[in-house]
Nucleic acid binder design. Structure first.
Length: 278
DNA sequence: GCCGTCACCTGTGGGC
DNA sequence: TGCCCACAGGTGACGG
């Protein structure tokens, strides 16, 4: 399930493969992937456009063309492949034919991924409209500090885990990494956001940066099916609590509960705190 | 405004 | 062996 490190890995892997290549045709096999345009409009805005760059904002990929931006969210299982042959995978939903003779394929088993196309707009203006204007700061952004989080959290009764998953507060963290960050910060995922003190907020920020940088370095996490151009990440070997049975610190049994509808792993001993429900 | 729930999807695995 | 069903999860929409 692509989170910030996985999306960054896709960006880094894909960019040298498609940069300066022109789209000569587009096939769409599942129209619901395209959210803000008809199939015809989508094709018209991309054909004869050249890939200039790939940017990333949170978990969104932004393909940069001369006159357009294609915003792609991989959601749960979206993947991009560059292929030469014509064989179509059952889960292939969009195909971009390039002037190099290759094809860029978008593959998504659960069809959750989205694509939005924007034309004749500057990057500055693109950042001012949905979906990119909904994003909070990334952990690497200096503006994401304990004061910022304190202001966001101070009136909230929601569990800290739900708040960290909220992309309008912190952009880029997903279910796996939030579990890891809370374990490193020794904070119970059910603890109310307003009860997190300033020292713990700083710990959350520091742990988020450390975890994400390490994951990017290892090419992300491959738990189920994530990959970019067929490459698998190695961060799953470094996970401390997510999908684990035993705490690596105190050897207690890791508990699995639901928080905000999400499967949540934590150590009830290392992550014990006032107000905990477990 | 805040917060919880549901829908979107399909492969997987457990139970019968 | 085969069928059924719960579950996985990021995000947006919706309702209380």
């Amino acid at each position: 399930m692509p989170e910030l490190p996985e999306v960054e890995t896709v960006r880094l892997t894909l960019l040298p493969l498609i940069k300066n290549k022109k789209i000569i045709s587009v096939d769409i096999f599942y129209e619901n992937i395209i959210k803000n345009a008809s199939v015809l409009e989508f094709k018209e805005k991309l054909i004869n456009q050249t890939f200039l760059d790939i940017l990333r904002f949170g978990k969104y990929l932004v393909f940069v063309f001369e006159n357009s931006f294609l915003i792609s969210h991989l959601r749960m299982e979206g993947k991009f492949y560059l292929k030469h042959n014509e064989n179509k995978d059952i889960h292939e939903h969009v195909r971009f034919y390039l002037d190099s003779g290759e094809t860029l394929r978008y593959n998504d088993v659960r069809k959750f991924g989205t694509m939005n196309i924007f034309s004749n707009i500057s990057l500055t203006d693109l950042l001012k409209i949905k979906p990119l204007n909904q994003l909070g700061y990334e952990p690497f952004d200096p503006k994401l500090n304990s004061t910022y989080l304190k202001n966001k959290f101070k009136h909230s009764n929601r569990p800290i885990k739900s708040m960290l998953l909220d992309q309008s507060i912190i952009a880029g963290l997903g279910n796996i990494y939030v579990d890891e960050v809370l374990f490193l910060s020794k904070i119970n995922p059910l603890k109310k956001a307003k009860d997190i003190n300033e020292e713990q907020l700083q710990l959350i920020i520091d742990s988020s940066i450390d975890t994400l940088l390490k994951a990017i370095k290892l090419g992300g996490t491959t738990i189920h099916s994530f990959s970019s151009d067929g490459i698998s990440g190695k961060f799953q070997n470094e996970l401390l609590v997510h999908t684990k049975n035993t705490c690596p610190i105190c050897r207690s049994n890791i508990l699995k509960i639901k928080v905000g509808g999400r499967g949540t792993y934590f150590c009830p001993v290392c992550q014990k705190g006032k107000g905990d429900a477990i």
